[in-house]
Every structure is written in structure tokens, then in C-alpha cells.
Write a protein that binds this DNA or RNA. Structure first.
Length: 290
DNA sequence: AATTCGGGGCA
DNA sequence: TGCCCAGAATT
């Protein structure tokens, strides 16, 4: 039995005892999966689940979403983070209406052509929405594969994408991706985490990185965070939050005053950035959401 | 290849 | 405080 087969068997056994349902997994709805894919991009499951439920309540169908006001879309997205995702998701829905007869496509290239849809989200839709035999290679699966098969501590940085793809294809060839895909994702989210729990891991005796972790080695940060306080990101969030609270457009002057922005130049720069990202629009010094 | 883009949770 | 989180687009 080769290593991939053995790892797969152990992970599937683990999954039997740690199965968790997610609303976009069993529903086998391309739309629910698409929303799930967007919600989970760089976002913890707890918050993604809340956004997903809120979103489907507000926009039950692709047609509803496509026809909605963008300001409403941004309000429903709320403080989920990366609000551009909300705009992309609505535009993706609009393109599905225009280009794909109101249906979400199942072809990889078609999905990838939608705004805000990359390899991860596309495969989420294909795996959970359409039940196709694919793996959604997310950060969790990269971590597991890079560690178990290559002995890398921080595979996001250290393991080549080609190698990850090779291993993925091995797993796909072994079948039942409908089981092994969520099993791997959940396993990576709870056992093979950034600081893995090798003492609870069912494949630690196979994993090429386990001895390194057990002897106390620590992975390098996958990316160094910049200071958030006072950053454009923080200001953009404050401006959007302000516009979300008001039901009508707000003047640029008022925005600057309420938020105590340093200068008109800074205010203009931030608003231009938000406008470029289609998060706000401006007319006659008045700023509105969407 | 590096940077940008939120916001919250947790050690 | 620093790092992380079911990524994707832009430069």
C-alpha cells in the first residue's frame, strides 16, 4: 500500500468520528456552494457560517442577488471582512444571469472567469455544488500534503505548487473525493493546524514533518502582518461602516469630520480607492454605498 | 513574486 | 502585540 493510500485511509477513519456538516456541503446547490466559497475566503468558519446564513436569507437565489441593490449587498455582508467579496459575488451572479442562462456553470474555466472566483472557490462549487471528483486545494490541504509527504513545516511557503498538484491528483485517483475532500479540510483545520497537534494525529508515524514538530521546531510565519492601526485598511473599514449606518448619501466633508480624518488629501485618496473597488460611488461631493 | 485587501480571535 | 484565517486580484 503506498503512502497516499495509507494516509487517505487514516484520514477517512478520523473523519468518521469527526464529521461536521456545513450548509453548503450536503445541499448540493451550486449557488449555496458559491456563496460558501466566497464567505470562507481568508475567513474563520465561525464567521463564514454566520455570513452564509444571513446572505441566503437576504438573497435566496442567483436572480435575487443579481437584481439587488449593491448598497444592500454590502450591508448584508457587514463586517465579514474583505467587502470587495460582496461586490464580486453579486457581479458573479449577474454574469451567471447574462452569460450562463441564470445557472452557475460547472466548467472550471467558466467558473474561473467569474469575478472573485479563483481555484479554491471554483473547486468548492464543483465538489460540493455539483458533486464532481475534484479536490479543493485550500490552505489546509496544502499544509497536510506538504508536511506529510515532503516534511515541510510551512508548506504554504515551502512546498512547490507542482508537488501539491501531483499529490492532489493521486488522491483524486483514489476516489470518493466527496468524502476525502471535506475530511482533509476539516483535518487540517483541527489537527494539522499552524501549530499542529501531532499527539492527536492518526498519521504522525507516517508524516515526514512530525518528528520536527515533536522535537520543538516551529514553522516560520507564512506572511508577516503589517500594522493595522492607522492603516488605509482601517480607514476604509471605518468609512464603509459609517456609510452602512446612514440610509442616504453622506458628504465628503461630513465623512472627514466624523471620522477625524487628517486632511482632505487623505480623504480623497481613501474615497478614490473605495470608488475604484466599486465599494462606494460619488456624485457632487456626496458619497454613497455601492 | 510581492503587495493589497478586513476584521476578529487567540496566545 | 503578532499571527492566523476553506483566497483572489493587482502590480
Amino acid at each position: 500500500m503506498d503512502t497516499a493510500t495509507e494516509v487517505r485511509t487514516h484520514i477517512l477513519d478520523w473523519y468518521e468520528d469527526h464529521f461536521v456538516e456545513f450548509p453548503w456541503r450536503s445541499s448540493r446547490s451550486p449557488y449555496h456552494s458559491l456563496v460558501g466559497g466566497f464567505c470562507t475566503q481568508q475567513t474563520q468558519m465561525s464567521r463564514a457560517l454566520e455570513t452564509h446564513a444571513r446572505w441566503l436569507h437576504a438573497f435566496p437565489t442567483v436572480a435575487n442577488l443579481a437584481a439587488a441593490e449593491t448598497s444592500e449587498v454590502l450591508r448584508v455582508w457587514g463586517k465579514t471582512g474583505y467587502p470587495k467579496r460582496a461586490v464580486y459575488l453579486q457581479r458573479a451572479a449577474q454574469q451567471c444571469m447574462e452569460r450562463f442562462g441564470g445557472e452557475i456553470p460547472s466548467e472550471l474555466d467558466d467558473l474561473l472567469s467569474l469575478p472573485g472566483v479563483g481555484p479554491f472557490t471554483a473547486e468548492i462549487v464543483r465538489c460540493f455544488g455539483f458533486g464532481l471528483a475534484v479536490l479543493t486545494v485550500d490552505t489546509n490541504i496544502v499544509r497536510i500534503f506538504g508536511r506529510v509527504f515532503e516534511g515541510d513545516l510551512q508548506p504554504i511557503k515551502d512546498t512547490s505548487k507542482d508537488r501539491i498538484k501531483e499529490i492532489s491528483e493521486q488522491f483524486i485517483a483514489l476516489g470518493r473525493t466527496d468524502l476525502i475532500n471535506p475530511a482533509l479540510m476539516d483535518f487540517g483545520a483541527s489537527i494539522c493546524t499552524g501549530r499542529p497537534r501531532c499527539d492527536e494525529c492518526p498519521v504522525s508515524d507516517i508524516c515526514k514533518a512530525a518528528s520536527k514538530f515533536i522535537s520543538g521546531q516551529v514553522p516560520e510565519p507564512q506572511r508577516k502582518n503589517k500594522v493595522y492601526a492607522g492603516s488605509d485598511r482601517e480607514w476604509r473599514g471605518k468609512i464603509l461602516e459609517l456609510l452602512t449606518r446612514y440610509s442616504r448619501p453622506v458628504s465628503e466633508k461630513k465623512i472627514r469630520k466624523i471620522l477625524s480624518l487628517e486632511s482632505d488629501e487623505q480623504t480623497q485618496r481613501l474615497l478614490m480607492g473605495l470608488e475604484k473597488d466599486l465599494l462606494v460611488s460619488r456624485q457632487n461631493q456626496l458619497v454613497k454605498l455601492g
